[in-house]
Design a protein around this nucleic acid. Structure first.
Lengths: 205, 205, 205, 205
DNA sequence: CATGAATGAGTATTCATTCAT
DNA sequence: CATGAATGAATACTCATTCAT
């Protein structure tokens, strides 16, 4: 009998998780199409095919749901920004691989990325904070890498702070152009190589 | 008598223009503080010190007013991005001066810049279009400059498209960090120099 | 075998009754704390420790349950308002005992009394009707007692109708003050004596 | 011109006050009929014949409006409970006049009185506080009067606290019966006399 | 019998826009 | 031209009740 109850509970929990996932997924699509502000809870429940009350059974509101979607993406991203080991050879290949992974992740999560770039800022203190934290993390990561590079003599003398800003901004713009601003595919490998080539060697002849 | 009427009309038009300018200016401040979505028409008329009806006498609505503010800024910017004559010597100095002018303009219009970066996207088809156009313009300008540079042998062989994206993104990020994200001043000249140094020569030793 | 079934049924009914009683009791507490309107069915099922559906298996809804609680209290009260035999001596002692019994009953059911006084009116036609009926019953009881008293010469000539209203109202106010409005105990006997003294002899010297 | 503007402003303010009064009056009727909880903002705006938005232009919500109605009544009442001067003769006549005034005021404001008695308690902390304060004031007034009476020898030795409770409760019940519980008129003078006769002299022969 | 996920009608409240004065 | 009271469609959210498991 306890097994039967366990079974029931288990099935209940599974169903709950499935519902949550279903609402998250359909909401993601709606947000990506309409944008956060233009999306009403009615839009979300309609897309999810559930009643208004059901929506609130799973989420505290559209902002809370949105926050969860953002967390999903930043988690995805963090998992893909793994460190480059400068003591090992083939640094440029490692960097290339990292940039490719980041771009591929964002392409795979195009809807979320679109939301993130288009409307995530200024919605909500919690969202802003989360994004600012991610931003600082990213910037710090690049700046430290440059400083380490300078210490080991790979990187020439330069303003590591500003260069970190430029590297992050360049990547952000690539995403804006090739992931957010279009539905077309692009050659991730080629773009990643061009990015590295530019950032490492500049444009002067 | 026609002169008298002209005088009246003139005075009327001047007053009208002054009112418009006053409402635009006060609205700009409110938008910069509260953000577009958190700002209501009530906030705007209160800040302007005019009646609600008067507001609609001068603008078609809060979005239309916002659009005008954006146009102001993009016009300002356009005026400051003047071409670099690569055939003349001192190219790097010319670029340095251009970057400095852009940054200085944005610092001078911090409120507008903040609005532009924080919330302008996804508000409205018209706004999006205008921003996209400016973006394309900027990108094209840089890309063409790079191609010309390649033609005259100043710029090494590279993917001009991607490099243009990286240059624009780098500048955008600098603005995000040093203009939008803080109220503190920064050394425009030093940052401009670091930007050029990075973009021209890359980071490798 | 029929015995066995009887046993089963009996056990089933007992369990049912126990469940009902448990839900009634916990609901009473919640109503007394939060008040009728501020109490949701969720509060009730949570307090009872049963599922939402189970609640509706035992009661038609929160109003129906509330009505049952009210009936409990009015039944308790009716049982304690036993007639005074004016032909027998010691009338004042009998009245004193009656008032004490009423007050003691209400103190013993403080939660219910509180609900009754604070929020029972205007909830629902059924509740209102029940309360009005109890009210009329009480009023009639006192009025008749006064008339009988007049007939036997114990009560002086007066407006029995109005006096009945005043007697009931006085008692009601005592309950409001000493039972509903506070959690402190009070000297039931002393108050009952003061009540009778006042109502029987007035305040004039 | 300043006169003209003054005129405009004056007219505007008058109109505002008239609207407020109109909404208050129609809301009062609805509350008296349906009761507070059964009344929705929709009911109120429909009764007032204004748009939903207009309602919120004048009141913060239905609770705020309700609070204003209650304040109206308690102000009316306070103005009618003027002290009895025991040093002057004809004390009983003075009391009679006071009771008559109170009853007349409540009859004149039957709708408000009905609301006050039926549903004012337990709605809201602010309302409760206001009512409790009025209650305490009333009780204190009577208790002090009894004590003064005892001091000057008009009132016999008794428990002034409990007697005050009984007097207030008696009056409250009279109102409940003759004002709140029916739409019929009653002989205010006769009832007031019966009330005083009962409270002053009791029921015993 | 018991469960609790799902429902959807209902509620309060906001706010861009209009228009009579 | 200027005003600001009035509008009402739209929005987020609640909660008593049902019903498949």
């Amino acid at each position: 009998m306890s097994e039967e109850i366990d079974g029931r509970v288990r099935r209940g929990l599974d169903a709950r998780e499935a519902r949550r996932a279903q609402i998250l997924e359909s909401s993601l699509q709606v947000f990506a199409e309409r944008g956060f502000h233009a999306t009403s809870v009615s839009d979300l429940v309609e897309a999810a095919g559930v009643a208004r009350g059901t929506f609130y059974l799973y989420f505290d509101g559209k902002e809370a749901l949105f926050l969860e979607l953002l967390e999903d993406l930043t988690r995805h991203l963090r998992e893909n920004i793994v460190g480059v080991d400068l003591t090992r050879g083939g640094m440029e290949d490692q960097l290339q691989a990292t940039v490719e992974r980041i771009l591929a992740t964002l392409v795979d999560n195009r809807a979320l990325t679109r939301i993130l770039f288009r409307e995530a800022v200024g919605l909500n203190a919690a969202v802003d904070e989360r994004l600012a934290a991610f931003d600082a993390e990213l910037h710090g990561y690049v700046a430290r890498a440059l400083q380490v590079g300078q210490a080991v003599g790979i990187v020439r003398p330069l303003d590591a702070e500003v260069s970190a800003v430029l590297v992050v901004g360049g990547l952000r713009e690539v995403v804006r152009r090739y992931v957010v601003g279009t539905d077309e595919m692009f050659d991730v490998s080629r773009v990643a190589r061009a990015v590295l080539d530019h950032q490492l060697r500049g444009v002067l002849a």
